[in-house]
Design a protein around this nucleic acid. Structure first.
Lengths: 154, 154
DNA sequence: GGGCATTGGTTACAATTGTAACTAAATCAG
DNA sequence: CTGATTTAGTTACAATTGTAACCAATGCCC
């Protein structure tokens, strides 16, 4: 017999990651963010701007693993909702500076505890040691995945 | 100061899971499956049917964390490509039995090694011990995520 | 055995997301 | 300076995905 390799979906790490990630993301989206009319892309944009006010859209893109179209759309929605302020950069009139408005800051301040609470609930069954390991494994795997990248195509 | 809780996206586990999962999935989709005209949903359906020939669409749904519409679509594409055979169940004429055709089996047999190879490449930087831990952590987290579920949604 | 709720599966339609083309501003080469 | 190239960001369109309504076959209850 030609050693037919077996593959069980439940043992296949990419599949398991996908299922876990989808479950977690939809729980967050459904349980919390919908109550604020916040999508996950919008939430991400708010999170980086809360930590780094004044970033340009391109800089937000660089920090969120979102493409620039997704950022553009999220920014447009947040602007329309009055949660973001945008000013054109004086030095380079293509660029813009983005920052949360007071209203945006308040929404963000209400969402953060919920997000952290969910994360905490998720991690509850893990020991302190496990959490540290998880942190390390995620970092390694992401680095490796980026390294293997779409370049592997072909 | 009212103890403003901080949230750094790069430390936020749900975010990190999402980025990792997306990177891995798109690498797999781009690098391998596109060459066979196989989408990820189709790949999943083939994988469960290779291991369990004769399952109904509903049973495939139950084993793949896909909803029944996604399965229906994947099955339709696979049927059109001649990679799947479908027969109506005699006992219950709503149900169908699905199984790979010879051609489907050949495609599957070619994809499996590539999938396993990618997984192996991804895991290379992890020690044997780390892999066992990863396995355990993924199982725990998924269980917990399901437990917290969308039920948490108000 | 005649409704009535259930289940398997598909179809139609809405919402999200990805891809590509585009405008505007800035840089750079000569 | 002028025109070719690059960069920031948006818009238009295609493809994917999710939601809901929908048949058809069964099971159930009376």
């Amino acid at each position: 017999m030609p050693a037919r390799p077996k593959l069980h979906l439940d043992k296949f790490v990419p599949y398991r990651l996908s299922v876990l990630s989808n479950t977690v993301s939809s729980a967050i989206a459904a349980a919390y963010f919908l109550h604020f009319g916040l999508s996950i892309p919008e939430w991400r944009v708010m999170a980086v701007l809360a930590a780094n006010p004044g970033l340009s859209a391109a800089e937000v893109t660089a920090r969120t693993a979102m493409d620039k179209v997704a950022v553009s759309r999220a920014v447009a929605t947040l602007l329309a909702a009055g949660r973001l302020r945008r000013t054109t950069a004086i030095s380079d009139r293509r660029r813009t500076h983005l920052e949360l408005t007071a209203a945006g800051g308040r929404v963000y301040a209400r969402v953060v505890p919920l997000a952290l609470e969910y994360e905490h609930a998720l991690m509850t069954p893990l020991s302190k040691r496990d959490r540290a390991t998880l942190d390390r494994l995620l970092r390694i795997l992401l680095g490796r995945a980026v390294e293997l990248g779409p370049a592997h195509a072909e």
